[in-house]
Amino acid sequence: MELNKAVLDCMQALRRRLRDELAVDIHLNQADAVEAMLMACLRSADQDTRNLGIRLAELSDFQSAAEPSAPARQYRGQALADEPPVAAAAATGETPRGTVRMYRGQRVYA
């Protein structure tokens, strides 16, 4: 996400409103500042605060707060495939026997 003047101005105005209305303290240098602001806007009863949240979502190209994205599965810093290990073993021609475990990055069939 690109932080330009319009996004920062909207974030500052929204931060002030959320602090006054809901007593929520969000710092602009937080990694999840935009997401935290949008979630707080959903709890707000004030329509102006909700409109600022909608504007921030449009400016930041943020996904809908109602459908959070699932974090990528990782093993030791490496992204795992979405298919289960048994299906991956079947695709490579290996014959899985029972359960599949990982040992030092290798599949072990027990």
Rank of each mutant, 00 (worst) to 15 (best):
M1G: 14
E2D: 07
E2T: 05
L3I: 13
L3M: 12
N4H: 07
N4E: 07
K5Q: 14
A6R: 13
V7D: 02
D9F: 08
D9V: 07
C10G: 04
C10M: 05
M11G: 03
Q12R: 14
Q12W: 08
Q12I: 11
A13V: 06
A13Y: 09
A13T: 13
L14Y: 04
L14A: 04
R15N: 12
R17P: 01
L18C: 03
L18T: 01
L18F: 02
L18G: 00
R19W: 11
R19K: 15
R19M: 15
D20K: 13
D20Y: 10
E21W: 04
L22C: 05
L22H: 04
V24I: 13
I26D: 01
I26R: 00
I26E: 01
H27S: 13
L28Q: 10
N29W: 11
A31H: 10
A33Y: 03
V34R: 00
V34N: 00
E35P: 02
E35A: 05
A36Y: 00
L38V: 01
A40L: 01
C41T: 03
C41Q: 02
C41W: 00
S44Q: 04
S44M: 03
Q47L: 12
D48I: 06
D48V: 09
D48Q: 15
R50V: 05
R50G: 08
R50N: 09
N51W: 09
N51S: 14
L52D: 03
L52V: 05
G53R: 00
G53Q: 01
I54G: 08
A57W: 05
E58I: 11
L59I: 05
S60H: 00
D61C: 11
D61W: 06
F62E: 03
Q63T: 08
Q63I: 06
A65D: 06
A66T: 07
A66V: 07
E67Y: 12
P68R: 01
P68W: 01
S69G: 15
P71D: 14
P71V: 11
P71Q: 12
P71M: 13
Q74Y: 05
Q74K: 12
Y75N: 13
R76D: 08
G77M: 00
G77K: 00
Q78M: 10
Q78G: 08
L80C: 02
A81N: 15
D82N: 14
D82W: 07
V86N: 10
A87E: 15
A88H: 14
A88W: 07
A91D: 07
A91Q: 10
G93M: 05
G93S: 11
E94S: 14
E94F: 10
T95E: 04
P96A: 07
R97E: 10
R97Q: 12
T99V: 11
V100P: 01
V100D: 01
R101L: 03
R101E: 03
M102T: 07
M102S: 13
Y103V: 04
R104L: 04
G105R: 02
G105E: 01
G105M: 02
Y109P: 05
Y109S: 09
A110P: 09
